Amino acid sequence: MNKVGIRQLSLYVAWLVSVIATLGSLYFSEIRGFVPCELCWYQRILMYPLSLILGIATFQNDWSVKKYVLPLAVIGWSISLFHYLEQKVPGFADIKPCANGVPCSAEYINWSGFITIPFLALIAFTLIIILMLLIKPSKNNQK
């Protein structure tokens, strides 16, 4: 596969990951009735625009979108990691307890003893970061 094919595939898969993450979060809150905690809202704020930004970039073959997507994904990844550690590591919850509503240490799901909603977000942000890093600009076209 040539460089253009790899870049296009990486962009498309990153968009697909962001759409699945967005729809998954909406499924958990709107269908399953799980009320998002404060950190979940921050992760949503960073993931939802990625669906739109990556979707437009995918259909425009705009590989320069990486400079906009990476900061959002890295910040989202950091929040997801902190949130996951708050759920799984004793003592982390004491660092910054959520002020109102659902506590951020609550686990609505716990599949196989380690897969929680913040873990799913962490995986989605990780995949998007990796896929963006696979997009290398061409020498004649700095997109």
Rank of each mutant, 00 (worst) to 15 (best):
Leu23Cys: 12
Arg44His: 14
Arg44Met: 15
Ser80Ile: 06
Lys67Trp: 09
Gln60Phe: 10
Gly5Val: 08
Phe34Asp: 09
Gly55Lys: 08
Phe59Arg: 08
Ser51Phe: 08
Cys40Ala: 08
Trp41Thr: 14
Met47Cys: 14
Asn2Pro: 14
Ile45Gln: 03
Gln43Pro: 11
Leu11Ala: 04
Leu72Pro: 03
Ile20Cys: 03
Pro49Leu: 12
Leu81Ile: 01
Val13His: 02
Leu81Tyr: 00
Trp63His: 06
Gly33Asn: 06
Gln8Tyr: 09
Val35Ala: 14
Tyr12Ser: 11
Ser51Asn: 05
Lys66Ser: 08
Tyr27Cys: 07
Lys3Asn: 14
Leu9Gln: 12
Ile45Ala: 09
Tyr42Ile: 11
Ile79Cys: 02
Lys67Arg: 14
Val13Ser: 02
Ser51Pro: 01
Phe59Tyr: 10
Tyr42Met: 11
Gly5Asp: 15
Asn2His: 13
Leu72Thr: 09
Val4Met: 12
Lys67Leu: 07
Ile79Glu: 01
Val65Asn: 00
Leu81Phe: 02
Leu81Glu: 00
Tyr42Pro: 01
Phe28Met: 07
Leu26Phe: 15
Ile6Trp: 00
Asp62Lys: 06
Arg44Cys: 11
Gly33Ala: 11
Arg7Pro: 02
Ala73Asp: 05
Phe59Cys: 06
Ile6Cys: 00
Leu70Glu: 06
Tyr12Leu: 12
Tyr27Ala: 12
